[in-house]
């Protein structure tokens, strides 16, 4: 496995300049790359090196650092190695190159990313709406989208429940048990 990883790193570094790698235990190898070379490096991995299976595309919102991290996970059935291609883009104006001409199924991932994180994908086809309908708020999978606030604003309690008893308070009254600290925030 170590030989395979070393050979792959060598081949990638010979073709691309701005790549840094990180090795993990087992059959995993990470490459940190610049967003500009994403289509080139993925095509190179698929066509020249046999990483024919795109297993996953994921996006992580690093709110504190002001960046989105995009992770493409590829798999080679011959070398039995998982390759992570990772890139970071600015959170303010996120733009990603489209890769659905390399793998058809990437289209679905990209449509979801566009809707859930508000990332613009250059030249992506397919309906604007994927999972959500008539969505007016900020893209919901961003870390600064407040789920509870949105729910309180949008939905309302069922009528006739205004005088419902908080079960926890009843339990305290009857058994004189204390509510643990972590549960206090759930009290009405």
């Amino acid at each position: 496995m170590k030989d395979i990883k070393a050979k792959l790193t060598e081949k990638i570094k010979a073709s691309f300049d701005t790549v840094s790698e990180k090795d993990y235990n087992g059959n995993r190898l990470d490459f940190h790359v610049d967003v500009k070379i994403i289509p080139q490096i993925l095509t190179f991995l698929k066509v020249n090196l046999g990483y024919i299976h795109l297993s996953h595309i994921s996006c992580v919102d690093w709110l504190e650092e002001g960046e989105f991290e995009i992770i493409y996970i590829l798999w080679s059935p011959v070398e039995k190695l998982k390759v992570f291609v990772r890139t970071r883009i600015n959170r303010e104006k996120p733009v990603l190159p489209n890769i659905d001409m390399i793998w058809r199924q990437a289209n679905t991932y990209e449509r979801e990313m566009r809707e859930m994180f508000g990332i613009e994908i250059e030249g992506l086809e397919g309906a604007e709406e994927f999972l959500l309908e008539d969505w007016q708020e900020m893209p919901p999978m961003r870390r600064d989208f407040q789920t509870e606030e949105y729910a309180e604003k949008t939905f309302w309690s069922r009528e006739g429940r205004e005088d419902a008893i908080d079960v926890r308070e009843e339990i305290i009254k009857r058994s004189r048990e204390e509510i643990p600290d972590f549960a206090k925030k759930y009290s009405r």
Partner: peptide, 15 residues
């Protein structure tokens, strides 16, 4: 056309 079953599990798991 999907969207009839979206329950935002992944968002809820973050909390």
């Amino acid at each position: 056309e999907v969207g009839y079953l979206h329950r935002a599990f992944e968002k809820l798991q973050e909390k």
